[in-house]
């Protein structure tokens, strides 16, 4: 029983790394993606094949996976990020589907639809969560540094960002590469944890799920993404009903539409969850209770 929940926690950690990558792209830079499961697939198969065919040690192989994923990202980014319009979105869709179809259609290398088995199992709970913590710390640092703020500026008002000297195309590319690297890494960890890979692990539904988790958590909040991920990723594990997967997706869809229409900022908005912030919030809330009735008291906490 304990090992079962450790497994759930490990997988949650792995997908959370991928979700954080998507959060940088979708949440902080405002670029929409429909194909990040494809980047996970590239990372996963890149890692697995580097281990199996090149006999690299596992962590070197993960690097290969990450690089492969970033290369694919660079390819579509180079082609579409400078264009105005939905070219980038459609390109992510294409890369996601293309990857899956390529994996299915070259069975001599990837095992095709029957999957790739006997990958050495080199990851566990502690490795995944250590990496996750490091990733969160690094992303936090990144977002408070020049380039991270550049991403937010691009999301908020591209023209204004350009006018104060931010190279918007480069900033978008940076954000895309970070998200690809994280998804590739998550894929590699998945390969090393599961020991086998199938192309159906990386469908468009998975890509959509990654993006929607980010939106529900709050576009532009790392802690929001983490909270949403911790709740939503293991959801099918505690909802063990018939066709739970489909109901979960219906729920995701409904929640996403409601959130977008009524509270587009998501669970956390663009704020981060901190203890001091929570205390401030509570204090404000209590003082508001006290002032109940005084209309338009002008003061704001």
């Amino acid at each position: 029983m304990l090992s079962y929940w450790t497994g759930v926690a490990t997988l949650t950690g792995i997908y959370l790394i991928a979700t954080l990558g998507v959060s940088i792209l979708v949440g902080f830079t405002g670029l929409f993606s429909l194909g990040h499961a494809g980047f996970m697939a590239i990372g996963a198969y890149g890692t697995a094949l580097a281990v199996k065919m090149l006999h690299l040690p596992f962590y070197a192989a993960i690097l290969v996976g990450i690089l492969a994923s970033m290369l694919a990202g660079a390819l579509i980014g180079k082609a579409t990020l400078r264009l105005k319009g939905d070219y980038f979105v459609i390109a992510t869709l294409a890369i996601g589907e293309c990857t899956k179809l390529l994996i299915e259609n070259i069975p001599s290398i990837t095992g095709g639809a029957r999957g790739l088995a006997d990958i050495p199992r080199k990851t566990n709970f502690f490795v995944v969560w250590t990496i996750l913590v490091i990733v969160v710390v690094l992303l936090h640092r990144f977002l408070n540094a020049k380039h991270g703020r550049g991403c937010v500026a691009v999301r908020e008002e591209e023209l204004a960002a350009k006018s104060i000297g931010i190279d918007t195309t480069r900033t978008k590319m940076l954000s895309l590469l970070i998200s690809c690297a994280l998804c590739g890494m998550a894929g590699g960890l998945l390969a090393g944890y599961m020991g086998y890979l199938y192309p159906i692990m990386f469908t468009m539904a998975k890509s959509n799920e990654l993006t929607m988790t980010v939106i529900l958590g709050g576009a532009g909040s790392l802690t929001g993404t983490i909270l949403a991920g911790l709740v939503l990723i293991p959801l099918p594990e505690y909802l063990r009903i018939e066709s739970a997967e489909e109901w979960r997706m219906v729920l995701y869809g409904v929640l996403v539409v409601i959130v977008v229409v009524f509270k587009p900022s998501g669970l956390m908005g663009n704020k981060e969850f901190t203890v001091s912030g929570l205390l401030r919030r509570l204090k404000k809330w209590f003082s508001k209770e006290k002032r109940n009735g005084e209309k338009g008291a002008g003061e704001r906490g």
């Binding site: 066709s243 219906v250 869809g253 929640l255 996403v256 539409v257 229409v261």
Partner: peptide
Amino acid sequence: QPLLDKGARRIYLLIAGLGISIIGENLIVV
């Protein structure tokens, strides 16, 4: 319409559409 009235950013329109397509597909299954 509500999103357009609010002048919401384009990405929210994309997300809402994605949500609807996912609802449609999975409601059929259910």
